[in-house]
Amino acid sequence: MRMDCELVERLLWSALEEHGTVATWENLAMPLLYGMGRKWEDTRRYVEVEHLLSWSVSSVLRRVTGPAPSTARPVVLACLPHEMHGLPLEALAAALRERGRPQRVLGPCTPAEATVRTIARTAPSAVVLWCHAKGDQGVATLRAVARATGAGRLRTALYTAGPGWREAGPLTRITDGHLSSLTEAMTHLLR
């Protein structure tokens, strides 16, 4: 609440060095972000604190390094076209980097065509589509990406992630599964 981003970043970095990316995200960063989001929803105040906290978490996650990336095919991480926030994908990218796993982060507001072109250009081992907020573009994007992941010579796994997919129902059958946590994502993506 003091908006001391230097202190927040030091504390997050300390936790990250001691416990790793997955534990720091799931046990510290995500609960803090969720708490600030609830505070804003309840009071319609402190959005600046939530934004500064998000920036601090992002800054720390982007500093995560690991062993030199392997020669494995990368994992593509993309948000849906209407998705404004991609911090959970930044956490996943950091956790993959920490383990030496190559990844390509396309981030928020990624057009479906851009994700499809990235799949064609990089031949990824997996694609993760993040959706926090429900939106009409999710269905079309998921179908387009599913076609692209099945079009190449090499098998590309397709996963959904985020609460925006809850109501997708049968559409998730065209994927290899829904990743409901960073721990679960790492289990699937490191296979």
Rank of each mutant, 00 (worst) to 15 (best):
R63V: 08
V60Y: 08
A29M: 13
V60P: 09
E50R: 02
V57Q: 05
T21P: 13
L33P: 07
V49L: 00
D42M: 11
E26G: 02
R44H: 08
R44Q: 10
A29Q: 05
A29K: 04
E48C: 03
W55Y: 11
G37L: 11
W40A: 09
S58Q: 09
A29N: 04
V22N: 03
E48P: 01
L53F: 03
V47C: 06
L53K: 01
L53D: 03
V47Y: 15
L33W: 07
G35I: 15
L61V: 15
G37F: 12
P31K: 03
A29I: 09
S59A: 15
S58P: 08
K39T: 06
E41R: 15
L53Y: 02
R63L: 12
V22A: 08
R38P: 05
L52K: 05
E26W: 01
S54L: 05
K39Y: 05
L33H: 08
Y34V: 06
G35W: 14
W25P: 09
L61W: 14
V57A: 02
V60A: 05
R63E: 09
V49Y: 01
S59P: 12
V49A: 01
V47A: 07
V49H: 01
R45V: 05
R45S: 10
G35F: 12
E26I: 01
W55F: 10
V60W: 07
S54R: 06
L32G: 06
R44A: 09
L61T: 13
E48T: 09
S58T: 14
L33K: 07
L53S: 01
Y34G: 01
T24P: 08
K39E: 08
L53W: 03
T24K: 04
V57D: 00
S56A: 06
A23G: 02
V57C: 04
G35R: 15
L61F: 15
Y46D: 12
D42C: 00
V64C: 05
M30L: 11
S58A: 15
A23Q: 07
R62G: 09
Y34P: 00
L28A: 02
M36C: 07
L32D: 01
L61I: 15
W25Q: 11
L52A: 11
T21C: 15
N27G: 04
T21F: 14
Y46T: 01
A23T: 10
L61S: 11
K39H: 06
A23N: 09
G37I: 11
R63D: 04
Y46A: 10
V57E: 02
L32V: 10
Y46C: 13
H51A: 08
S59K: 14
